[in-house]
Write a protein that binds this DNA or RNA. Structure first.
Length: 306
DNA sequence: TAGCAGGAAAATC
DNA sequence: GATTTTCCTGCT
C-alpha cells in the first residue's frame, strides 16, 4: 500500500484537471479523488503545493503521478502562448492549473469510441459497465475494483455479450477497434512518434486499413492524439466547442458553418468543415491549441451551468 | 456533400 | 411521463 507525496513546483489544480471531461474513471469521495489508472487505484488529494497520494501498486509512484498529470509541462509558458485574446485570458485565469492528462492510449481510444452521442455521466456508465464485465477484479483497502479491460478481452468478447453493456450501436465499433489494437494493426508508438498531422493520418489509416466500420472519425482521433499521444496541437471539436467558437471566435469558422450554427446551435459539422475549422483554430492558438480547447471547454460548461 | 439513422440514458419540460 | 438532447460516425 504505497503512500507518498509529490511536491508541486509549478501551477496545478487537481480539481479543474479531473473535472474537465478528459477522464472517465475518476470519482471524488470526501476530499479525496479515486482514480483507476495503470491497472490499479490512485487515491489523491491536493494540499496547495503538495499532492498526497496512496496507491494499490508499486507502479503507481511519484514518477507515475508526475507523468500522468504532465506536471513537467511549463504551464505558464503554455498559457502565455494560447492567451491571445480576452476570452482565453479569462478562461486561463478562472481555471488556472488545469492540465491535460496523459492517459493510457488503448483506454483513451476505447473510451472515446463510446463517447459518441452521449453525455459524460452516460460515458462513465458505459465505461464502468465494460470494466465490470471484462476487467480484472482486485481489492484495495477493503473495496473491490476492476481494471480497464484489455483489448484482447474486448476483441474476444461475443458481440451479443458486449451488447449487453448498454453500449447500443457502439458495441460492434468497440469490438472491431479492440481487434485492430490486439492484432497490431494499430501501432500507438508509431503514431505518437510523428508530428500531429502525420500522426492523425497514420492513426486513421491504421484504423481504416481493414476497411471495416470503426467508429473513429476526426473528433475521436483528435481526442486520442491529445489525451494520450502528446499531440498538443490536436483540437477536438465537439458540439460544445463548436458553439463556443461560433460565439467567441466567429472569424475562425467557415462562413457557411457559422451561419448554420447561428441558426441552429446543434447543426452537424461535416468532415470538410471539421478539417477547415481544425486548421484555423490550430493556426490561431498555435502549438498548444489542445490546451486552449480544454480551457474553452471548461469556460463554456461553466457558462452553461450559470 | 448534405441528410439521415443509430440506441440508450440524461436532461428538460 | 413524454420529449428533447446527448463531447459523432458511417451510409446513402
Amino acid at each position: 500500500m504505497p503512500a507518498f507525496t509529490v511536491r508541486l513546483d509549478s501551477p496545478f489544480s487537481l480539481e479543474h484537471t479531473l473535472g474537465s471531461g478528459q477522464v472517465f474513471r475518476w470519482s471524488r469521495r470526501d476530499e479525496w479523488w479515486y482514480g483507476l489508472v495503470a491497472d490499479g487505484v490512485l487515491k489523491i488529494k491536493q494540499e496547495v503545493d503538495v499532492l498526497r497520494c496512496e496507491s494499490s501498486s508499486d507502479q503507481i509512484d511519484p514518477s507515475f503521478v508526475t507523468r500522468y498529470f504532465r506536471l513537467g509541462d511549463d504551464l505558464d509558458h503554455i498559457i502565455a502562448a494560447i492567451a491571445k485574446d480576452d476570452g482565453m485570458t479569462r478562461a486561463a485565469e478562472r481555471f488556472y492549473g488545469l492540465r491535460l492528462v496523459r492517459q493510457d492510449r488503448w483506454e483513451c481510444l476505447a473510451s472515446f469510441v463510446l463517447a459518441t452521442n452521449a453525455n459524460i455521466p452516460r460515458i462513465k456508465k458505459m465505461v464502468a459497465s465494460i470494466c465490470d464485465r471484462y476487467g480484472r477484479p482486485f481489492d484495495y483497502a477493503g473495496t473491490s475494483y476492476r481494471s480497464f479491460p484489455t483489448s484482447r478481452a474486448l476483441a474476444e468478447a461475443p458481440g451479443s455479450d458486449l451488447a449487453r453493456c448498454g453500449l447500443g450501436y457502439r458495441a460492434p465499433f468497440l469490438k472491431k477497434v479492440a481487434a485492430s489494437v490486439e492484432d497490431g494493426a494499430v501501432d500507438f508508438d508509431a503514431v505518437a512518434a510523428l508530428p500531429y498531422e502525420g500522426a492523425r493520418a497514420l492513426l486513421l489509416q491504421e484504423l481504416f486499413g481493414e476497411k471495416v466500420l470503426l467508429g473513429v472519425g476526426p473528433k475521436v482521433a483528435d481526442c486520442v492524439l491529445l489525451y494520450s499521444c502528446d499531440k498538443d496541437e490536436a483540437f477536438p471539436i465537439d458540439v460544445w466547442i463548436a458553439r463556443a467558437l461560433a460565439r467567441s471566435y466567429p472569424k475562425l469558422l467557415p462562413p457557411p458553418l457559422l451561419a448554420r450554427l447561428r441558426r441552429d446551435g446543434k447543426a452537424k459539422i461535416s468532415a470538410g468543415d471539421y478539417s477547415r475549422l481544425s486548421g484555423s483554430v490550430r493556426r490561431w492558438f498555435g502549438e498548444y491549441a489542445g490546451y486552449a480547447q480544454q480551457y474553452l471547454y471548461m469556460a463554456v460548461r461553466d457558462q452553461e451551468r450559470a
